[in-house]
Amino acid sequence: MKEHIVSSFDEELQKITARISEMGGLAEEELSMALEAVRLRDGALARKVIESDDRLDMMDARLEHDAIQMLALRQPVASDLREIVAALKVSSTLERIGDLAKNIAKRTQVLNEGQPLRVTGSILRMGKLTQTLFAEVLDAYTSRNTSMAVSVWKRDVEVDEMYNSIFRELTTYMMEDPRVISLCSQLLFVAKNLERIGDHATFISEMTYYVVEGEQLGDDRPKGDPLAAFIED
């Protein structure tokens, strides 16, 4: 799009876009380290995730401050307004994704105290898929690519389904051997966190669509039935 007559307005908008990219990169890295920490049973790496999350929180606070300043001082309209509102929402979504990654890292520390569990493999596969969707949606947001965003939005159902099957798997283990309940419930939370990250990724899809089209994507997103795990048997 054409540049603003007032160039400092463009500079501020660019700064916000750059910050979102940076925060996205940081959240991606946190998630990838947290999953590595689960895979390698690496306590030191888990601690690194927990420490680096503070930075994401700070960046979110700073972006919020800057965005509010722009709303007050520039009184943006149309695409500028959508851009800033979306940045505000995406920023806090990234901050939450960081929190969920941090939570996975915390649970790793408990998991490392017990024996390795077989189910960890399926969780890591779910983690891979979540990472892929998250990376794609960040690309889609940065490049304002709505078709890519919609594709992520639709594929989150795969994460939901993996979550449901892991839920079933873990419940079975716990029933077979009550000694693993403590460890398995930690894993269950890891899976739940990944499922939440998938949902947050679809929200970024929706924001991408809103920035470009000025309309909401709609609420008929395909979702995995959250009760499927209970209804089975």
Binding site: K2, H4, I5, P76, A78, S79, D80, G214
Partner: peptide
């Protein structure tokens, strides 16, 4: 509608201060 999602490119350029 005009101030959140105008249809015309020129409207968009004008209200967001991108004219010229």
């Amino acid at each position: 509608k005009i101030f959140t999602n105008p249809d015309h490119e020129k409207t968009q350029a004008y209200i967001t201060g991108r004219f010229g």
